[in-house]
Design a protein around this nucleic acid. Structure first.
Lengths: 216, 216
DNA sequence: TATGCCGTGGCAGAAACCTGCCAGCGCCTG
DNA sequence: CAGGCGCTGGCAGGTTTCTGCCACGGCATA
């Protein structure tokens, strides 16, 4: 294979990717959701019997929109795949095989027969992209942690409470700032902690920090 | 230019990169430190007069090891560059120009004349790598936030306290788990909060979460 | 040996946080 | 209009956290 080739259609992708992925080495899949690459829902299960520990999957939060896909992700994780969610949209799908080959999905919305993929084993390109993947992976949240918190859609009130909490002032001061009574503030804090699935403020802070909630 | 070419030595890099970077469009620089790409310390200053807002730089924490480099980064930020630090090592340097061209540094430790770079404007490759960059960027910490916390090197004891705190149990339970008295645990907690520059546990939790300290 | 320093642990008092209880108010519905 | 519901705010009691104080033990040094 020359360093970089274009694959036309899902059939050609499967033809080329199949043998690469079949021998059980390291497999990395980065995608917007389970539609980014064809057969993602099925291939995960087929591979489950192999060296699942070498499989890493990074998705955008969009993958969690569908209940069945959430179940599918959980199943992957239960089979030993490492699944993480990043806050970024990941509009472009990427697959790494054994850190030597990468395949990029070019046309997210195209039909299976016309969809194009770019496949490369040029060391410099693969290594560079892989390093970026590692950076994104490092910062991404584990699937279960993500689901546990469910990346809550905090309403305005909750955001304000989170910000006040994060500023480090006493509850009395924060309540005054927000123009509510201390009792109400305490209620809001308790609700926020419940949303974040935390039993303490520190634990809630870690969750919020990891999910980037304090940046919103 | 064909889709992907190899550049040999820093001189050829500058010859090709110079015109691309000179017109002031978007410029992204991803690097281990300020040695990853030649002239990083000088070119940042030369560019400062242009559209600094379109310059983004992502570094690994190694870039902060040298005091002068920290000052250089601060200067970049003061000139309007966006500078972020990711927890990943970023062994491979990458430059994106206008989201259409990317250049990857191949030999981090090589001498200037023998160092190789791979340059590509293949849309699929560039877009895919760029998406990964965006994911890493999204999760990276702003330089000032990083420096403010200074990514504390927590010793074993502090890590244990952080983990105990993050588990959500009471201080009494955590102290028992760690085999220390409640008073000592409180001292350790206070020290950790001081290290994180926080006035409350929630605030400290956010800091720790954003910095990925809970994962170590 | 005596002294000083440092870290630990117990205790106490204060501050901060947590939550149940209840009254009051506004809104909605029959 | 009356009744029900939800939310707010004050209060009280309890729990958790915070930190100063002091005694003690271990270690290093003169």
């Amino acid at each position: 294979m020359t360093a970089t080739v274009t694959l036309y259609g899902d059939l050609e992708l499967r033809t080329r990717l199949g043998p690469l992925a079949a021998h059980g080495g390291e497999f990395v899949n980065i995608a917007h959701d389970l539609d980014t690459f064809p057969g993602a829902r099925e291939s995960a299960r087929l591979r489950a019997a192999g060296s699942a520990g070498a499989v890493r999957k990074l998705f955008s939060p969009a993958v969690l929109a569908d209940e069945r896909d959430r179940l599918a992700l959980r199943e992957m994780a239960a089979h030993g795949f490492q699944v993480r969610i990043t806050a970024a949209p990941l509009p472009q799908g990427t697959v790494f095989v054994d850190r030597r080959t990468m395949i990029l999905a070019e046309s997210p919305g195209a039909a299976a027969a016309t969809r194009r993929y770019t496949m490369s084993n040029a060391a410099a390109l693969v290594n560079g992209a892989y390093a970026l993947f590692e950076a994104a992976w490092e910062a991404a949240a584990d699937l279960e942690a993500f689901l546990a918190s469910d990346r809550p859609l905090l309403d305005d009130s909750a955001r304000k409470v989170l910000r006040a909490l994060g500023s480090g002032v006493t509850d009395a001061a924060a309540a005054r700032q927000l123009g509510m009574s201390l009792r109400t503030y305490h209620r809001r804090v308790a609700e926020l902690l419940a949303i974040l699935g935390a039993d303490s403020r520190f634990q809630a802070g870690i969750r919020a920090g990891e999910l980037g909630l304090a940046r919103d």
